[in-house]
């Protein structure tokens, strides 16, 4: 197992390198640059600006400088659009924000979605199944850009219970609505996947064997069915979790949380190459860690997978 983990970890560096090279050239192919503006800069001013950010060098030199600055000093460069800040500053300030509301959002999704799915599976095609599916649908038909204004209308404008936005260092009042708005549609997906995989597991030979042995239903479900049934859900949640903790542009913009979710989008629109590359690397590292964790989870739950990996 250790061997397997090490091999996977060895992939990190080449993967990131390919990502950086690919993203770097892709961004430069996009029309417009960070300093393209409504008023075209006079050539002399443009030349100064390009030199200031090292963009007067040939592309491969810029790429080399970028990579070596990261390797030597963990320096991801200055932001083009937020002139007083470096990429490190931007991520250090915004990532804790999205990490917080994203984490709570994931907790919300799992705590509601998984039980919903399990109950629906246990009462397959019964009243509870349809009710739960109905609830799941209900939550999925509210895309966040419809749900968020509704939440604010109710909780802020009508009842005055929660502030309509802001972060304030991450007090709980400021986390509730972003977490719900971000998570609701995923809750439906989680419920559906859990229901599907629970049904799958409940129909499998070894559960049938357990039933034949006369084990109590509760034991069968909690001891034998739950763990393997949760695997597809958790696999699904791996990348979703990465998405959640890096925030959503909609939530960041709508609730003014100040997270990095909006930087993925604003960085692209303003051609802030440095921010975009920094975020791409962060995203890749998180994806890497989460997929590895999910795989290890498989190995932990299923001895045969463990044997297969080693």
């Amino acid at each position: 197992m250790l061997n397997y983990t090490l091999r996977r970890l060895l992939m990190v560096v080449p993967t990131l390198l390919i990502l950086v090279i690919f993203a770097f050239y892709l961004m430069r192919l996009a029309p417009g640059g960070p300093f393209t503006s409504e008023r075209p800069l006079p050539p002399a001013v443009m030349a100064n600006v390009l030199e200031r950010y090292g963009m007067d060098e040939p592309l491969h030199v810029q790429l080399w400088t970028y990579v070596s600055n990261i390797v030597c000093c963990f320096d991801f460069g200055p932001s083009f659009s937020q002139k007083d800040r470096s990429v490190n500053d931007v991520i250090a300030q915004g990532f804790p924000v999205t990490l917080t509301y994203g984490f709570w959002s994931a907790v919300f999704v799992l705590l509601l979605g998984v039980p919903l799915g399990i109950i629906a599976a246990l009462r397959h095609n019964g009243f509870w199944d349809y009710t739960m599916t109905g609830l799941a649908i209900f939550s999925q038909i509210f895309p966040n850009f419809v749900l968020a204004p509704l939440l604010v209308l109710l909780f802020t404008l009508s009842w005055g219970l929660l502030p309509g936005g802001g972060w304030n260092g991450g007090q709980w009042q400021y986390i509730v609505m972003p977490a719900i708005a971000l998570g609701t549609s995923y809750m439906a997906s989680v419920a559906r996947l859990t229901r599907g995989s629970m049904l799958e597991v409940l129909g499998s030979p070894y559960i049938r064997t357990a039933r034949a042995k006369g084990l109590p239903e509760r034991t069968i479900i909690l001891r034998h069915a739950l763990k393997p049934a949760l695997l597809p859900t958790l696999t699904y949640m791996g990348p979703v979790f990465v998405y959640m903790i890096t925030g959503s542009v909609f939530v960041d913009v709508f609730f003014s949380t100040g997270g990095i979710g909006q930087d993925f989008i604003n960085g692209a629109y303003s051609r802030d190459y440095a921010i975009l590359l920094g975020l791409a690397i962060l995203y890749a590292v998180l994806t890497f860690v989460l997929t590895l964790m999910v795989d290890l989870l498989y190995a932990w739950i299923d001895p045969k997978v463990r044997a297969g990996l080693s």
Binding site: I18, L19, L29, A280
Partner: peptide
């Protein structure tokens, strides 16, 4: 599994991290 699996996972990781708006913009161009 094995090397093939690791390659696919690598491509998967890279693809998720690519700034997709830029991808669309380049495609449009």
């Amino acid at each position: 599994g094995g090397r093939f699996d690791r390659t696919v996972l690598g491509a998967y990781t890279i693809w998720l991290a690519i700034p997709y708006i830029i991808f669309f913009v380049v495609w449009q161009a």
